[in-house]
């Protein structure tokens, strides 16, 4: 029988995959993909908790996460297009103009 713990472990694994991508990637578009993976992992955890505690709050939070993810993608891709026009590349190392 599949319990809450199984879903949470799968969600944790997916979140770690996304976190690994965020740490590893240098291309901004790929970085966005990794953040989407993390958001989806959290949504799975919310839906699982909502189901096993018979509570709708988890699903509500998942809806708002989806709305936030959609607006993040819209603004983020606009910024990426502006950056690409300016620098001709989406690599984070090329974009680091402030040498700290």
């Amino acid at each position: 029988m599949i319990g809450l713990t199984d879903y949470l472990i799968v969600s944790a694994i997916l979140f770690s995959i996304g976190l690994m991508g965020v740490l590893r990637r240098r291309n901004l578009l790929m970085l966005f993909f990794a953040t989407e993976v993390m958001l989806n992992a959290v949504n799975v955890a919310f839906a699982a908790i909502s189901h096993y505690y018979n509570d709708l709050t988890g699903q509500m939070f998942a809806f708002f996460i989806i709305a936030i993810a959609a607006s993040e993608v819209a603004v983020g891709l606009g910024i990426l297009i502006v950056l690409y026009k300016k620098h001709g590349s989406l690599d984070l190392d090329d974009l680091a103009s402030m040498r700290g």
């Binding site: 966005f32 699982a48 699903q59 809806f63 993810a69 959609a70 819209a74 990426l80």
Partner: peptide
């Protein structure tokens, strides 16, 4: 996963918003 968990509406929203809208945005980008 959402459909298994009984969150039907969330599953449909996931399909429409993520697979439909967000991935279309990414492919345009």
């Amino acid at each position: 996963f959402f459909f298994i968990l009984g969150a039907d509406f969330l599953g449909v929203v996931q399909l429409i918003v993520y697979v439909g809208a967000v991935m279309a945005l990414y492919s345009f980008a």
